[in-house]
Computed example of a mutant assay.
Amino acid sequence: MNIPASNLDAGRMTAQGLLDRLHRRIGAAGLAAAAVIPSLSAQVDQHAAEVRDLLGVRGRRPTLAALASYADGLLDGATDRGWQAPQHDLAGWVGADGVTVRLVALCGLADSAMA
């Protein structure tokens, strides 16, 4: 499953729309897998903490706009390097790459920001 960066351009979509699309494409499956794979859950949590630090919101919820902007930039760089969103079965999530885990973490942060 490929998520072209051009389809996730924050200038063309709302922050909410970008994050919703990302969640449908990778976040829902990744968060479900993290709920049953402790090592993935720990990785997602670590990435979420790193994103909060990078966005300067340690201890607070990042805004949807900040998360969408970060996701857009991450996807641009990753797709430029040939990254494509994986199509994992549950076992495949155990070895998920860093970009994929970071995007799942972004989806989890967006879920929390909307709660």
Rank of each mutant, 00 (worst) to 15 (best):
Q87G: 03
G92Q: 05
G56R: 09
A48S: 15
R102T: 15
R24L: 12
A113W: 03
L103M: 15
S39G: 04
Q43M: 14
G56S: 06
A91H: 01
I37C: 08
N7A: 07
V44W: 01
P38A: 10
A42Y: 03
M114R: 01
D9T: 02
L75H: 07
L55P: 08
Q43G: 07
R60S: 11
I37K: 06
V99N: 00
G27K: 12
T14I: 03
A113H: 05
L90E: 10
L64K: 08
D9Y: 09
Q46C: 12
A35Y: 10
D45I: 03
L18I: 02
V57T: 12
A66N: 07
S39P: 04
V94I: 07
D97F: 01
R24C: 07
L103R: 10
A85D: 09
A28G: 03
A110I: 06
H88L: 06
H47T: 00
G17C: 05
H23D: 10
D97N: 10
R60V: 02
A71Q: 05
S41T: 01
A28Q: 13
I37G: 06
G27W: 11
A34Y: 00
G95W: 00
T100I: 09
A110S: 12
A48G: 15
D80S: 11
D76M: 03
Y70N: 08
R61Q: 11
G77L: 14
I37R: 00
V101G: 08
A110N: 02
D97M: 06
R24H: 12
A113M: 08
V51W: 00
A96E: 11
V36R: 15
A10T: 13
P4G: 15
